[in-house]
């Protein structure tokens, strides 16, 4: 658990972070979202003491972080940044092994960990481990960046716009990976982004920041349904709020299940159980159909989703 109590940070006369209170529960993904210069990165960098705070208290699991040795504190907090910060003179494997090396793990344990993480992030231990960062694509480099942040098995993960520099498709892929990894590992995560869609997708709770203050701290659904101010309303966009709400829920939540899974008819178009309701609606609109078959991950037809239900109960 991370607690920020009355935390302020000034750069000269400029107040970057203004007396904020924020509690991040263990295992939750807290996304700090806001426009550039709102103090979200500053907040993140105070949690691992890359920046000292001007006043206030930051506690990790009840302990003031200023009491700990800064290097020891950071070794227990994975850190990934937008420009990856991979060491250009080291191979991918050595980059991922930085924190295990700093923690003085035996080399066998470290190598196993590196391979495990490469696999977890969809990279190939046999071919990618010995590449240098300049031989990687942007998406691959960022995967390595995330793997490196996870390497020391930290309790906390700090991510500063890690997918900000990627193209839309790669970003989407990495967000999916992130959700999958988070389901497996349950790390307490603080994630900074300026992209509200990314925030809605990844967060268990979102903290909307503006001019150094936290305007609203709530679940994605609550933020969409009850924006606390005109600023938040603008940020989420009034027009497609309904679609964004649909995007938060999966088809599996709303579908009618068959008692027994069936073999799908050949060439039938439908949606997957894990797709969002937004996708389901889009397919319905495109095909002009009132009902869609729903498939499981194994490819069996396990139920249907109806347009009526989606329009009434979706948002």
């Amino acid at each position: 658990m991370i607690e920020l109590k009355g935390v302020t940070r000034r750069f000269g006369d400029v107040v970057a972070v203004d007396n904020i209170d924020l509690t991040i529960e263990t295992g939750e993904v807290c996304v700090l979202v806001g426009s550039s210069g709102c103090g979200k990165s500053t907040t993140l960098r105070m949690i691992n003491r890359l920046l000292p705070r001007t006043s206030g208290e930051i506690l990790v699991d009840g302990e003031d972080i200023n009491k700990a040795d800064p290097e020891a504190l950071r070794l227990n907090m994975g850190y990934a940044i937008q420009s990856t910060g991979l060491f250009p003179h080291w191979t991918v494997a050595r980059n991922i092994g930085v924190v295990p090396d700093l923690l003085k793990w035996p080399s066998r344990k470290r190598d196993e960990r590196v391979n495990e993480l490469l696999t977890l992030l969809g990279l190939d231990p046999a071919t990618d481990a010995h590449k240098y960062p300049h031989q990687l694509s942007g998406g691959q480099a960022q995967r390595v960046g995330v793997a490196r942040a996870l390497a020391g098995d930290p309790n906390i993960l700090l991510m500063d716009e890690p997918f900000g520099a990627l193209d839309a498709i790669t970003r989407e892929n990495l967000q999916q990976e992130m959700l999958r990894i988070q389901r497996q590992l349950n790390k307490t995560t603080v994630f900074v982004t300026h992209d509200i869609d990314e925030a809605l997708k990844l967060a268990t709770r979102i903290a909307v920041m503006d001019q150094g203050r936290i305007i609203q701290h709530d679940t994605p659904e609550a933020i969409l349904r009850r924006p606390a101010s005109a600023f938040v309303e603008n940020l989420i966009g009034k027009g497609d709020r309904g679609l964004k709400l649909l995007a938060l829920r999966t088809v599996g939540d709303l579908m009618e299940r068959y008692p027994q899974p069936r073999r799908p008819e050949p060439y039938s178009n439908g949606v997957n159980e894990a797709d969002s309701l937004r996708v389901a609606l889009s397919v319905m609109v495109w095909q002009n159909s009132a009902e869609l078959p729903v498939f499981s991950e194994a490819g069996e037809e396990i139920g249907t989703v109806k347009r009526e239900q989606l329009l009434q109960g979706g948002a």
Binding site: N48, L50, E71, A72, L73, R74, L75, M77, G78, Y79, I81, Q82, S83, T84, G85, L86, F87, P88, H89, V98, V99, L102, G145, R148, A149, L158
Partner: peptide
């Protein structure tokens, strides 16, 4: 590059380790 140093520091390298293992090479 500043991000490289920032990443090193953020991962828990000491200033000395950053100098010897990153900046100098």
């Amino acid at each position: 590059p500043e991000p490289v140093v920032d990443a090193g520091r953020g991962m828990g390298m000491s200033e000395r380790q950053i100098f010897v293992q990153v900046k100098l090479p």
